[in-house]
Measured scan of single mutants.
Amino acid sequence: DTLHVTQDGKHIELRGLSEEEIKLVEELLRRGRKVEEALKIIEELRK
């Protein structure tokens, strides 16, 4: 699936995420994380 995010005035499209990963990214962003940080966390969880 694809998640569309706008952060720091930039539109970012995150592709290839599972539904659970999207929920996790959304939660991390709500808690003030940056998109880059959220993606690093997803990458770690995929290992």
Rank of each mutant, 00 (worst) to 15 (best):
L24A: 05
H11L: 13
E37T: 07
L45K: 06
H11Y: 11
L24G: 02
I12F: 15
L29R: 02
L39A: 04
V25N: 00
I22E: 06
E26G: 13
R31G: 08
K40L: 12
I42M: 05
E43I: 06
A38S: 05
I12C: 06
G9V: 02
E36A: 12
E13N: 07
E13I: 14
E44T: 10
E36Y: 15
R31W: 15
G32D: 03
L14Y: 05
V25Q: 00
Q7G: 07
E21Q: 02
V5M: 05
K34W: 09
K40D: 10
T6D: 14
V5N: 06
L29N: 01
L29W: 02
K47S: 15
H4F: 03
E20G: 11
K40V: 11
K47W: 14
L39R: 04
D8C: 03
E21M: 03
L45N: 08
E37I: 08
G16N: 09
E44L: 13
G16M: 02
L3C: 11
S18L: 07
T2K: 09
L14G: 04
G32A: 02
E36L: 13
L17I: 03
E21G: 01
L17Q: 00
V35T: 04
G9S: 03
E21I: 02
I41M: 12
V25T: 04
D8G: 07
E37G: 04
T6N: 10
G32F: 07
G9Q: 03
R31N: 09
R15T: 13
K34V: 07
E27K: 14
L24M: 12
L28V: 06
E37F: 14
K40S: 11
E20Q: 10
L24Q: 06
E19L: 14
G9N: 06
E13D: 10
I22K: 14
R31Y: 13
A38N: 00
K10N: 11
E20T: 13
K47M: 15
T2D: 08
D1Q: 09
L14P: 02
R46M: 04
L29Q: 01
E13S: 08
T2W: 08
I42H: 00
T2M: 08
V25H: 01
H11W: 12
L29D: 00
K40R: 14
S18F: 06
G16R: 03
L24P: 00
I42C: 01
E44A: 11
E27P: 01
D1E: 10
V35D: 01
E21D: 03
A38L: 13
I22S: 08
L17F: 10
L24F: 09
T6W: 15
D1R: 04
R15D: 08
D8T: 03
V35R: 01
E27T: 15
E43H: 10
I41P: 00
H4C: 06
L3W: 03
L14E: 04
R30T: 05
K34E: 08
I42V: 11
T6H: 13
V5P: 05
E13V: 13
E20D: 13
L3F: 03
I22P: 00
R30W: 11
E44W: 15
E27Q: 14
V25R: 00
E13H: 09
R46W: 04
V25L: 09
S18R: 07
L28R: 00
L24V: 10
G32C: 05
E44R: 09
T6G: 06
K10Y: 12
R31C: 05
H4D: 08
G9T: 02
G16L: 05
E19N: 13
R30L: 13
L39W: 11
L24D: 02
L28D: 00
E20L: 09
T2H: 11
A38E: 00
K34A: 10
L29F: 09
D8A: 04
K23S: 11
E37C: 08
K47I: 12
K10V: 15
R33K: 11
E43S: 08
V5G: 06
L45M: 12
K10M: 14
A38G: 02
R15P: 09
H4M: 09
E13K: 04
L3G: 08
T2F: 09
T6S: 09
R46F: 04
A38M: 10
K10R: 06
V5D: 05
H4P: 07
E26S: 15
L39H: 02
D8P: 04
H4R: 05
D8L: 02
K34M: 09
E26K: 15
I22F: 09
E44F: 14
E20F: 13
G32R: 05
E26Y: 15
L3V: 12
K40P: 02
G16Y: 07
L24W: 09
I22N: 04
E27G: 11
R15K: 14
E13W: 12
E19W: 13
S18I: 04
R31E: 07
L14I: 15
E26T: 15
G16H: 09
T2N: 09
A38P: 00
R15N: 11
G16F: 07
G32E: 01
R15W: 15
L17G: 01
E43A: 09
E21V: 02
A38K: 00
R33Q: 10
